[in-house]
Amino acid sequence: MFTKIHSKKGLQLVLGLLAGIVFGFLLQKGGVTQYDVILGQLLLIDFTMVKIMLSAIVVGMIGVYFFKGLGLVKLQPKAGSTGMNVFGGLFFGISFALLGYCPGTAVGAIGSGYMDALLGGVIGMLVGAGLFAAVYPRFSTLVLQEGYFGDITFPELFKVNPWILVAIFSGIIVLILYLLESLGL
């Protein structure tokens, strides 16, 4: 239905900018552009970040699957493998604790005046991403392809109606949020 809009390049650049402005605004208002809030999460003393992520997942999931049912939205799950998601994921976690920001929140942190996010974080990330591009061809065959399982989703994996899993995931997430609140975290 909106495919005509999708192919308008100039309009998409503007929509991307607007969506980014909203996202950056929300990250800053949520407090996750602060090192203290991110490290507080990783030290399990401040659950702001998990609360934001989990409530975004529930709301996003219900809407995206609803619009998918209407044929208005195409899913785009990323392909995965043990090499990428387990080993890469662990290394991401280590980087996350050292830097205290992830790519999006680091950029947002610059917007709030955090100089460690600019001079350390984002400049470092540009170097790191460049290094990855340089080693990609060899790294891909050595590591990324290890245990490849493709771009599957849980409803495809378990061969069930997606709404069953949307309901289960939503239920579990709401329960976790309820527990966090009742523990005063």
Binding site: K78, G80, F91, S95, L99, G100, M125, F132
Partner: peptide, 22 residues
């Protein structure tokens, strides 16, 4: 220095894992 090392790692890791926290 810690942020820079973490940043270089993060730049590499977010592509290694094929995505970030977003």
């Amino acid at each position: 220095i810690t942020a820079f090392v973490g940043g270089v790692f993060m730049g590499f890791a977010s592509r290694w894992a094929n995505g970030c926290t977003s």
